[in-house]
C-alpha cells in the first residue's frame, strides 16, 4: 500500500509542478513546448528497456519489446532533435543570435 501511496504522490506532485511551470510558458513557445513534452513522454523507453532485463524472454515478448524500443526511440530522439531545430529558428535582431544560426 505504501507503494501505491508513493506512486500517487509522485503523480500528483509531478502534475502540479508541471502545471505551474508550463502555465508560465509564453504562447510564442507553445509548439516547441509540445514537441519537447512529446519527447519526454517517450520516457516509456525505460519500460521497453526493462522488458529486456528479464531472465528469459519468449519470442513474442522479444517482438513486442523491439516494437516498443523502436517507437519509443523514434519518439524520443526525433522529439528532441526537432525541438532543437525549432528553437534554433527563433532569432532576434536585438540580441546577437547565439543559437548558432541555421538548423
Amino acid at each position: 500500500m505504501t507503494e501505491l501511496a508513493l506512486m500517487l504522490v509522485v503523480f500528483i506532485l509531478s502534475f502540479v509542478i508541471g502545471y505551474v511551470l508550463i502555465s508560465r510558458v509564453p504562447p510564442l513557445l507553445h509548439t516547441p513546448l509540445m514537441s519537447m513534452t512529446n519527447a519526454i513522454s517517450a520516457v516509456t523507453i525505460l519500460g521497453a528497456l526493462l522488458l529486456f532485463a528479464q531472465p528469459s524472454m519468449d519470442l513474442d515478448e522479444k517482438v513486442l519489446g523491439a516494437i516498443a524500443l523502436i517507437t519509443a526511440a523514434f519518439n524520443l530522439v526525433g522529439g528532441f532533435v526537432i525541438t532543437d531545430r525549432m528553437t534554433g529558428l527563433f532569432k532576434s535582431h536585438h540580441e546577437p543570435s547565439g543559437g548558432g544560426g541555421k538548423k
Binding site: M7, S14, G18, M34, G47
Partner: peptide
C-alpha cells in the same frame, strides 16, 4: 506513459508521464 510507470513501478515514468499530461491539459 504514467500508467506504464505504475505497472512496472517506475517513479520516473510516472513523474514524466504526469508532467506531459499536465502540459497537454493546459494547452
Amino acid at each position: 506513459a504514467a500508467f506504464c510507470g505504475v505497472v512496472i513501478q517506475n517513479q520516473l515514468l510516472i513523474a514524466c508521464g504526469a508532467t506531459v499530461a499536465a502540459s497537454g491539459s493546459i494547452l
